[in-house]
Each structure stands twice: as C-alpha cells, then as structure tokens.
Design a protein around this nucleic acid. Structure first.
Length: 258
DNA sequence: ATGTCTCAGGGACTGAGA
C-alpha cells in the first residue's frame, strides 16, 4: 500500500502536474493540503477520470485538505468533529478516512506566521487539539498514519541552517514540544528510511532556495507501531520541485507491506 | 535583494498569507 502526502499550494493551478504525478506514482492514498478552494471549483471530474475517489474539505482562498484514493474510504471525518471543539472546525485543515483497515489522517497545521502572534497562539492550540483527537483515533484504529504539512521542523537536523532558524517560527521549542505530543508513540516513517542530514520537503519560492537546497523538513508521515514494521520504503520526491509551476512543497511517499 | 507564488476584489493593481 502506497501512501503519499503533498501540499499542492492550489489544486487548480497544480492540477496538470498532479494528474501526471498520479499516473506516474499510482499511490493508493494521496493526502493533499492547501487546495485553496471550495467544492464548487474543485476538479472532482478530472481526478475521478484519473482513477481516484475524492474526499475534500475546502474553503475560499485558504487551507483546504483532501484524500484521493484508488478504493473508496470509510468513516470520513472533517475536522475534529468528535470533540466538537470550534478551534478545530473553523478552518479546513484536517480530513481523515479508513482505507484497507489503515486510518489515514491528512492535516494542514497552521503556519503560525510569527512567534507571539495570534496565528502562532492558534497554531499551538490547534496542535494540542490534534493530539487529544488523535489519541481517540488510535484507540479506534491501531493502524494509523498521520500525513501532511505539519509546519514544524522536528529537530535541527531538519533545518538547512539551524542557527538562522533558531527559535524562529516552524522551529521553536514550543512548536516542537507541541508536535512531539501529537506524534507521541508514533514513528517518523521518513526518517526510518532517510536518516541523512539535508533532507527537506519545502523550499521558499523566494530567492534561489531550491537550487541551493535551503529548505526545511516540515511535511511528514508518522505511523503507529504496527505500521512501523510494515514500512518498507519512504522517499521525498524532490523532482516535483523542478520544472514549470512547481508547488513550494515536494510530495512525500511511504510504502507499507501488510 | 524586502528576492516568489496564489488568492480575492475588481476590472490595474494591491494586500494578505505563506
């Protein structure tokens, strides 16, 4: 079972690239973030024509998450509805579904803007809410993968220049601690297979950051312990950052063997 | 290089967000 995640930074702009990528990689499940549109403008027909079932939770201009899958999923949920907490339902940042017994969660964690800002406070609260909700999800589905743009570089090994990013947003101790609570008991499936320094998934559009490999590893796939043993491969597809109209994020892919 | 990309509003460009 091949599971992937990709912050596409606008589904409408990225559609041709996304369809080509689906045909090349044929993931069983693909988690998308930053679709940046409402259902009325979401390209359901094009993705269905490419052979995928689609579950989307979008909103105008910002955010938006989706699950694409070869087989239809079950128990699809949007937000943290089980807990009914408005901090998690006012922005389209989490969608989950079950595929072949594996619970797949696609999240777009708030960016946080600047340390100390209202958006930063919201990010920390959102991560705390995610942690609580995920505990319940894992009780129902012991096989769970958490995928998405987490907007946190978990360690300095995930940062091209740890000094420059020291206690900057995406890298602060508070964010890392909140993220560690979210992923407690789970395994970083990418690091399991890609331990090398300099592995990053996002490069700022500004300057020549991609060509200098000045990026951060903020897109992740974590798995519960039953899945750690099943994970036979994990890659960052940095080729998708090249060419015409790339997203600023690369897709991340894991392979699970039952 | 405060460096780019995407969106909305409005109908050319600006501001917000990342």
């Amino acid at each position: 079972m091949k599971i992937a995640t990709w912050n596409v930074n606008s589904i409408r702009v990225r559609l041709p690239r996304l369809v080509a990528w689906l045909q090349q990689h044929e993931p069983d499940v693909l988690c998308l973030q930053e679709t940046k549109t409402v259902d009325e403008q979401f390209p359901f027909a094009e993705l269905q024509a490419a052979g995928y079932h689609v579950e989307h939770w979008g909103q105008k201009t910002y955010n938006g998450v989706a699950l694409l899958s070869k087989q239809p999923g079950s128990d699809i949920t949007r937000g943290f509805a089980a807990d009914g907490n408005p901090v998690a339902t006012e922005q389209a940042r989490c969608i989950a579904g079950t595929f072949g017994g594996v619970r797949v969660v696609s999240v777009y964690v708030p960016n946080g803007s600047e340390v100390g800002s209202d958006k930063y406070t919201y990010k920390l609260a959102w991560l705390a809410e995610l942690a609580t909700w995920l505990q319940g999800q894992q009780k129902s589905w012991p096989q769970l993968v958490l995928c998405g743009d987490m907007n946190v570089a978990p360690t300095d090994a995930d940062v091209h220049d740890p000094q420059a990013w020291h206690e900057q947003v995406l890298c602060t101790t508070a964010e890392r601690n909140a993220f560690a609570t979210v992923t407690a008991g789970m395994t970083d499936l990418i690091r399991l297979h890609q331990p090398q320094a300099g592995l990053v998934t996002w490069w700022d559009y500004r300057g020549l950051s991609f060509f200098k490999n000045l990026g951060l590893r903020i897109d992740h796939i974590y798995g519960t312990s039953p899945l750690e043993a099943q994970c036979t491969a994990a890659v960052v597809d940095r080729a998708q950052r090249k060419g015409e109209q790339p997203s600023d994020h690369a897709p991340v892919i894991v392979e699970l063997q039952a």
